[in-house]
Design a binder for these strands. Structure first.
Lengths: 333, 333
DNA sequence: CAGTTATAGTGACACGTGTTACCCGCCCGA
DNA sequence: TCGGGCGGGTAACACGTGTCACTATAACTG
């Protein structure tokens, strides 16, 4: 393996027969006047050497970077995580910003903030659960220009994107109520889903209260056996809810299957609504009524807000609309 | 907003009443002897000031960073992407490495390589489609210590993890053949799935050839209407395949649904196998035979290999096993 | 007591970049 | 002829860190 030296701007300067300062002026497009001839020489030299400026040195000198740091979101805190990240990354790249997802999703609090601060990012995009007041303060003190929080409730100490992963439950419940359903039930899976499930359950209860509707709680897991007792009970019309919010589309499909096995018809006997707009929901019959976020719009609004924040402006007004979940009415409810 | 100064090691030194060099020795745990008393003073000062070392300056001085850069994988190139990333991030964090996912998945080739090189990462983990020879050469020249490629075929110019997203198709096909099926069919969805689908189809054909089995190709999309013609044809036993490889679990579930609607029984009339081990496959009847990667194992082996590569050793031998897809036999085939 | 060794601490340099202030030659106007 | 503006280019500093070489005191060893 040849011990090639990583080319620096000095190498480019030497090859072009000019000073390093000139190289910098050319490559960064300063308004400093440079003759076209030398400009071309410098560009050619940089290309020949495959010169790539050292981001560390640049950031050190400038006192800031163009990094947008996104600590690895814990599962469920961002809707459509991989799609969201893909869109956000492309959007930010178009704005001259580098999205960096930082690895360990267990890091949090002040301890995590110190790790994130080490990179001296221009901006950090955090969920509220980890963006505590001291964490945000530490980041600010480390020179992070923009700290954007995601979640509800919004912290008063930093601008926030009110992405509420439980909002889909609210929208779904409103739809059920508008259809005249008053006896509701809600699946509440445990395990890895527990945290989000509790919040969605609360959202359902809250929305139901407005119409004085009652909500039965069904703890479960992703196995038919876990909902079998409830389904058996519901065979008796006296104990049967009008409609079920099933936490998400997977649970909804499982529930619909179990109901059919028990001889109950969806939506005639029980209406079912899920969340997430999984493709299968549009395919299997009865097709699934669901609620979801427009993830691309959301990513666009977040990217735009970050850019505006860095420019000293306020959040993108389009955010308010983008965080609203959408309802897709199909056959199941 | 108060214009607080970002604390540097100089500030810590001043507060502790020692020199900056001493601060560095204490905070980095050098073998240089430092009295316990001053050690504590320094640590206290650092804590009080919420000191976080500047990663840029550190990397600049050291000539290397502890960043593992993973350019955003294009969809389908990594199995179980979000889970994989979560595991990989945690594993690397435990090894003192920072996983950074870099934003724009459209960047590629030499142009992309220059962007990635700017960060001067310690290691880069790339799929072979973007890890072309010149790209790898550029990264190496920029001082990247370890370039690890993911995909098949392995490039001869860099160590590779032979993760083959189409290997699941091979395993599925072998299972079908071992069950005595000789007339096979394969779903080949277009659109966003086209690239991966083609490769999986080829893998099926290849595996089938060994037993002189024929493979019918069924182009389709994620809509029942797209497979309706094939299903209609299969109602005639003379035109009916013994088994279908359905690209993935979603398509498999869609297919099973369509077959049942057409009065065909799975697996009696036609066997079906998918890929991905989606939870629903284990729930709906007939439960779905499927193939998938053990993503956590894969992430562990990749993390371990990166660490070893940085230490100048060879890849983790556990990789060979970790890249093998697993077969889960259930009712459908 | 002289000489070696460990302990505790510091000064100064280099990493690669962007930018400010400066220099030099030229042309123009008075 | 002289001063001044301008196009074209450069020297030199600062960013924050890690580490090498070095000093000084104290502790042994013979």
């Amino acid at each position: 393996m040849s011990a090639v030296s990583r080319p620096t701007s000095t190498d480019v300067a030497r090859r072009a027969g000019v000073s390093r300062a000139t190289v910098s002026h050319v490559l960064n497009g300063t308004d400093h006047p440079i003759s076209e001839a030398t400009r071309q020489r410098v560009l050619a030299a940089a290309r020949d050497l495959h010169y790539a400026p050292n981001a560390s040195a640049r950031a050190l000198r400038a006192g800031r970077s163009n990094i947008v740091l996104l600590p690895m979101p814990r599962s469920g805190s961002l809707p459509g995580q991989d799609v969201f990240l893909a869109h956000l990354g492309r959007e930010l790249a178009g704005m001259g910003l580098d999205l960096l997802l930082h690895g360990d999703h267990t890091a949090s609090g002040v301890e995590g903030a110190r790790m994130w601060a080490e990179l001296r990012p221009a901006a950090v995009f955090l969920d509220t659960s980890r963006g505590t007041q001291p964490a945000v303060a530490l980041l600010r003190q480390a020179g992070v220009q923009a700290v954007l929080l995601s979640g509800v409730p919004a912290g008063p100490y930093a601008p926030s994107v009110p992405i509420d992963p439980s909002a889909v439950a609210r929208v779904a419940t409103r739809h059920l109520l508008s259809q005249g359903h008053r006896r509701l039930s809600c699946l509440v899976p445990g395990g890895e889903w527990a945290a989000l499930a509790e919040r969605r359950f609360e959202a359902v209860v809250e929305a139901a209260q407005i119409e004085n509707a009652l909500v039965e709680r069904v703890d479960c897991s992703l196995a038919v056996s876990s909902i079998a007792p409830a389904v058996a009970r519901w065979r008796n019309p006296a104990h049967r809810p009008d409609a079920v919010y099933a936490y998400n589309d997977e649970f909804a499909l499982m529930l619909i299957y179990a109901l059919r096995e028990a001889g109950l018809d969806v939506p005639r006997d029980i209406a079912v609504v899920g969340s997430g707009n999984q493709p299968l929901g549009a395919i299997l019959r009865p097709t699934l009524t669901t609620t979801h976020f427009l993830v691309p719009d959301l990513a666009h609004a977040v990217a735009s807000s970050l850019r505006r924040l860095l420019d000293g402006r306020e959040l993108d007004p389009a955010l308010a609309a983008a965080v609203q979940p959408r309802l897709i009415v199909r056959e199941s409810a």
